[in-house]
Design a protein around this nucleic acid. Structure first.
Lengths: 232, 232
DNA sequence: GTCTATATAATGATAGAC
DNA sequence: GTCTATCATTATATAGAC
């Protein structure tokens, strides 16, 4: 299991350097020269291999998608050992995560593909766990799958904020150790002590079909206001 | 309530154009000339007002943070009417959201400030709701607040994916109508049918202190693997 | 495949007129 | 405050030697 930059082909080395820099600094800010320097080749060679800067970007997109979706299948087969390998190889993935974050918040079709693949995986998982009786039957499987996927990606997309909030890298062992139980607790017992919010929202939604749905009032998530994305 | 571009000062018009373009295309990709064209002024004027392109960026950062945090207080005072106003004025906010998304996934200190403000708001809300008996006592308030903030921001940061998955804009009335109940359901009843996952994770975590924590196995969220950010 | 030039265009920034 | 014109720099991309 290669750890980082070793006996990679020159082309792969350039691609890896590009992923890292695009992910860290953005596409527009990153210059071909900087990529060439990072990969220790001449600027000309970068363009020789990928045609243009945009061609390089597309290659990076394809590579990152492939890498994530590929690993996803791997995870499905053997999650535990895959996680172990992941932790051992975490340095290799950080650049990919940063790149992924930029992909997802911008609007490329490659990001769409990737998201769809992850969403499909989540849906399949939901079906299985519900069938096995591990999970209960939710209100709406599709929407639940969508938001679970979002929630799962959020810590990756905002990795910096998680690391700041946790006081340590979430992807470290200690980070996982500290956040696992609280999150499982949330997904096991929920947030509210009883049904009253749900009932109230259901009522409000069936009652008013017009503008200003009152529901936003006590819902910690999802709602329309960017000022306080989870609640007031 | 001004809807979009009207009797704004020239400086404000330039700033709005910059927010929109930076948010849509990224900082490096967006040129001063493009901003000038969008604001219908000369390139020189842009730099006259903001000193440099980076100065313009900083002004945009400050503006967006201020706008979100300011609105947040507004929400706290009167969530319902604030939401109504938000919905009426949704076009004005879309560019801000796109800008926010880029801020949060890149690593500026302005983004840190903003996130911290939102996190503080979430924490305060948690305390209140728990004290009021609306929410139950969680495993760890701080970590819960952190992840609730992340979950709340996720649909904004990945707005495009939510819109694709929902088949309509999440910020539209119909989008809210469709996603409110499923999400409230998740936060009310949780995901799992019983405690077994939580118990298993707790056991695994206290048992093994070494590498490879088995817990990742059945936790739909937060875990280390980018391949399947929520579960296998 | 890889490098060293170099062409060509576009960018951020400045100066000075109005 | 706003514009036009221009500078100096830097970028992507190409051509050709090795």
């Amino acid at each position: 299991m290669r750890s980082a930059s070793e006996d990679l082909s020159t082309r792969a080395r350039i691609r890896d350097a590009a992923v890292a820099l695009f992910g860290r600094d953005g596409f527009g800010t990153t210059t071909v020269r900087a990529i060439a320097a990072a990969a220790d080749v001449s600027p000309g060679l970068v363009l020789h291999h990928f045609g243009s800067k945009d061609g390089l970007r597309q290659a990076c997109d394809r590579y990152v998608v492939e890498e994530f979706v590929g690993r996803k299948d791997e995870m499905t087969r053997d999650a535990t050992s895959a996680i172990a390998r992941w932790l051992a190889d975490v340095d290799r993935f950080h650049p990919l995560i940063d790149y992924l974050a930029r992909m997802l918040s911008s609007g490329t079709t490659a990001a769409d593909e990737l998201f769809d693949a992850l969403l499909t995986g989540t849906s399949r998982m939901l079906d299985e766990q519900i069938a096995a009786g591990i999970m209960r039957e939710p209100e709406d499987r599709d929407i639940l799958a969508l938001y679970l996927t979002l929630h799962g990606l959020a810590p990756l997309v905002m990795r910096r904020q998680v690391t700041r909030g946790l006081g340590l890298d979430q992807l470290s062992e200690e980070g996982i150790r500290r956040s696992t139980i609280p999150i499982l607790d949330l997904y096991t017992h929920g947030l509210y002590s009883d049904d009253r919010m749900l009932v109230a929202a259901r009522e409000a939604l069936t009652r008013t079909s017009g503008p200003r749905s009152d529901k936003g009032e006590n819902d910690p998530n999802q709602d329309p206001d960017p000022p306080r994305p989870r609640r007031s």
